[in-house]
Design a protein around this nucleic acid. Structure first.
Length: 253
DNA sequence: AAAGCGGGCAACCGCCCTGGA
DNA sequence: TTCCAGGGCGGTTGCCCGCTT
């Protein structure tokens, strides 16, 4: 078959520095929002969506570029196991990282790593989570996704909406990284409320400390009302100094 | 040195949700 | 209640570039 495509005319238009500058100045002047009018008012020959994406993913202040740290990688893996392809939620726990970046990073680095590794997890239906490589035809694999997304047409809107809210709740329980690459717990979340707390313990595991707490969430299955204790054996400060008090996740089951 | 190949990632597509009229 | 526009999100595409042969 003959490829009639003009190679000199890319279908996708990379953003030029001048365009970035125009967009940045426009947003600084007018603020975010009304992306549909940006192209008209700023003179950019770009769609509103394109402008919004460019701002969100690259021009916004405090965007962190560069290689993912080991901590970030581990958190992505854990959160993906819990949430599936909810990139925005995962990215929300990694300050400076965007959903697009997390998604790309998963597809190009972590997806393979998890395929090699020991973990073949199952979803609630017992199906294997067969993660596919980024270069495969994903259209054919859509229905294999163990974590339903907006593409899943089988469920009605209400069910999906409820599912999303549940996932967002569980995401709120996950520790997030601060700007210094240390981890905190989200104070806004119900996780630290003393009246509804149980003791979780760290076990020996070759993961970093914050991941251990995450492991425990998984290990205990978010059972409500149970209290569990374990001893912290890590040399890490956080583990040594205290038990973590975590509320249970009562809305699950 | 040149061609082919494949990985990485920026950008786009299309569906869905939400809020306002 | 319905319609519509704007925005959010996950999936997918395709170019760029480094590596291999």
């Amino acid at each position: 078959m003959e490829d009639t495509r003009e190679k000199k005319q890319p279908k996708k238009h990379l953003w030029k520095p001048e365009e970035d500058l125009i967009l940045k100045k426009y947003v600084e002047t007018h603020g975010e929002g009304n992306w549909a009018t940006v192209s008209q008012q700023s003179g950019l020959m770009r769609g509103g969506k394109s402008c919004r994406l460019r701002w969100k993913n690259y021009l916004r202040p405090n965007i962190k570029r560069g290689e993912m740290s080991q901590e970030e990688q581990d958190l992505i893996i854990r959160m993906h196991k819990l949430l599936g392809n909810r990139w925005s939620l995962i990215a929300g726990r990694l300050p400076g990282r965007t959903d697009n970046e997390v998604k790309n990073y998963w597809n190009t680095h972590l997806n393979k790593r998890c395929q090699w590794g020991k973990r073949k997890h199952t979803d609630s239906n017992g199906d294997k989570n067969d993660s596919n490589g980024s270069k495969t035809n994903n259209k054919e694999n859509k229905t294999d996704n163990p974590h339903p997304t907006t593409s899943e047409s089988q469920k009605n809107t209400t069910e999906r909406s409820v599912e999303r809210k549940e996932e967002e709740k569980s995401a709120a329980l996950i520790p997030f990284m601060d700007d210094t690459n240390g981890f905190n717990f989200d104070i806004e979340s119900p996780i630290m409320t003393p009246a509804n707390s149980s003791m979780f313990v760290f076990d020996d595991e070759p993961f970093t400390t914050y991941m251990d707490s995450f492991l425990l969430f998984e290990a205990f299955g978010y059972t409500a009302g149970e209290e569990s204790y374990a001893e912290c054996n890590h040399s890490n400060d956080l583990c040594h100094s205290q038990y973590m008090t975590l509320s249970t996740y009562s809305s699950r089951n």
